[in-house]
Write a protein that binds this DNA or RNA. Structure first.
Lengths: 340, 340
DNA sequence: GAGCCTATTGGGAACGTTCCCATTTTACTG
DNA sequence: CAGTAAAATGGGAACGTTCCCAATAGGCTC
């Protein structure tokens, strides 16, 4: 028999099972075991007959918890973000939570809107990959008791858990690798670090480490219209005296730089190319692009467990800052002399 | 002044504004204009002071609509899916809707679970990129009045709107292009068409058209462990007599085939390679991979407007089957003689 | 077998809205 | 200026749950 076309309620199930709504409610909650086996059977029966499914809106209203987690992503089309969301989803589902995913397209205004929206839906926790610096709103959210976790990017003056890559380690690993491969001059390319702490951290670490290693280095900020061809051309011209490599701050940059290398006819290897973030196609560009892969699933899982810890009240007193180590994926683009 | 740390309710706003909850409710609904300007001002004032935000759970409960749309995606890591979700999100937001996005990872069981879940959240509409064939559940959903739209893949015995690519046209365009470029032998590669109508349609059309055009053709189904290297090698060996091209049924296949071409050392162009779905990196693989790009944003927008039409009761009597035309992106991988 | 404790069950209020309907106010007609 | 219609506002029930507490049933102890 097909379920009734109008949704059955707790009360109807109770009526059919010859019991009270309270018992039915218990049956679907964590107190099922308190019910007599025979009662349990009757309720189970009635529920299936009617095709009953709890109305989570009502539950959310009464205070039983919405079982929703809000996820705010700065750029949903970025494969890194998607991979992390995938991890978050896995972990959330394992704990009986669902996700409301909002995409801000890196627009602080949309971020604001989405934050109020998520609050309106009574999400039990929030995972935020910030586009702007919405301290005020987040602070308010925090004070109203909503667990918060920042993903990848920090927000000033906000003391909450942060999950992401160990940026310093990543840069160190990259420099290590490049120097070991014989590159003596480095160009670090990033998108504007203005609103993303991650970009700042990486950039800063790069400058600091390059200096302390005594390596010739420069940086290039990718603008929308920036004529970076010129900079790139100049950079590669010195390669005879000291071989150079380009380090890309993230996947987007790697894409842009790969394009530029091709358009300028710069061969990969003799001029090195390396990127943070692993992408499907990095192995396909001859001779392969070396990357630092982020453990995206781990990051997603970590974000959810931080949230759950906060929900259980078992959160540590001071915020956690969990930095994950990247995995170095060596390919041909950072091999100086392919023939040796 | 910071908003109160506990969420303000309609009643508190009403009290502060010296009016009734009904008026405040109206203020935040579509009947704002019915209120005296002075009353509107008082309410607006009180609301900002208290940092009031409607509780959408409560609204959803009472029947005012949850303002939620459910999106069920078969594979959230597929760039095509993400792009469509992006389009859906844009359109939904423009109409004041938010998204609960669920990922099934192509697992029919998870699909079932997610469907009940979405139902529980009282979503006002459902956009489904089916993993299995959940006719029963979807039928039930339909009968209970939830607007439904299928994305990309159809479900048997289910008469609802379907939005997706015009698969027949896509195959025709591909064949046209390949034949025009001089390829005389075609290999169509697809993932298992077992549970995805799209794959079936494309495959069938390919066979049908190849025959009616009198072209030598074969098909290859990509299994998990299938040793397709052999088939590919054999296929390319005849290329002297009649030049061959490989047509990939979707982005995943294009990725796999590109890998295989490289591992087998098959040059692109002399053996053609073309894929349905546009991907970031297709232009980067020398000499560029020809693709049929799907208008993902349009598809997303169309899905939302179908849903809204149904919600407004202005739906046409019989289900719409909206097929979008792909855009041909010609690149070097389908140029037989690069030197001419 | 009376008395008590515990395991099981049920009734009612509350959550924050929306919507129906009743009431008050305003504006207009003649 | 009474009379009436229309506009503006307010009161209360209802949505489907959960949770507190009361009530009942069952099993002990002495």
């Amino acid at each position: 028999m097909p379920p009734a076309s109008v949704r059955a309620t707790l009360i109807e199930v109770a009526k059919l099972a010859g019991t009270s709504k309270t018992s039915v409610s218990r049956f679907f909650g964590p107190e099922r075991e308190r019910l007599t086996p025979s009662l349990q059977a009757r309720i189970a029966n009635a529920a299936t007959t009617l095709g009953y499914q709890p109305n989570l809106m009502a539950r959310g209203l009464k205070g039983g918890g919405s079982r929703l987690l809000g996820v705010l992503v700065a750029d949903i089309r970025n494969p890194f973000s998607v991979a992390v969301v995938h991890g978050i989803e896995q972990a959330a589902r394992a704990h009986g939570y669902s996700l409301i995913v909002c995409n801000t397209d890196n627009d602080p205004e949309r971020e604001q809107q989405h934050l109020s929206l998520l609050k309106s839906y009574q999400v039990e926790g929030l995972i935020i990959n910030a586009a702007g610096q919405p301290e005020a709103q987040l602070q308010a959210l925090m004070h109203s008791g909503v667990p918060l976790v920042l993903l990848d990017r920090e927000v000033h003056q906000l003391d909450v858990d942060v999950i992401g890559l160990d940026n310093a380690l990543a840069i160190d690993m990259a420099l290590d690798h490049l120097v070991q491969q014989g590159y003596r001059s480095l160009l670090y390319v990033s998108e504007s670090p203005a609103h993303a702490s991650t970009r700042q951290e990486r950039l800063q670490r790069f400058n600091q480490q390059a200096e302390s290693l005594g390596i010739k280095s420069q940086t290039l900020i990718l603008g929308n219209s920036a004529p970076h061809f010129e900079a790139l051309t100049v950079f590669t011209q010195h390669s005879a005296s000291s071989p150079g490599a380009v380090l890309c701050a993230n996947g987007n940059v790697t894409l842009a730089m790969t394009r530029s290398f091709q358009q300028l006819g710069i061969p990969l290897g003799p001029t090195g190319l390396m990127g943070i973030d692993e992408l499907d196609w990095c192995e396909l560009i001859t001779p392969g692009i070396t990357t630092l892969a982020q453990p995206t699933d781990d990051i997603g899982h970590a974000a959810v467990s931080c949230l759950l810890n906060q929900l259980n009240g078992s959160a540590p007193t001071s915020p956690v800052r969990y930095r994950h180590a990247p995995r170095l994926q060596v390919r041909g683009s950072t091999t100086l002399k392919p023939n040796l």
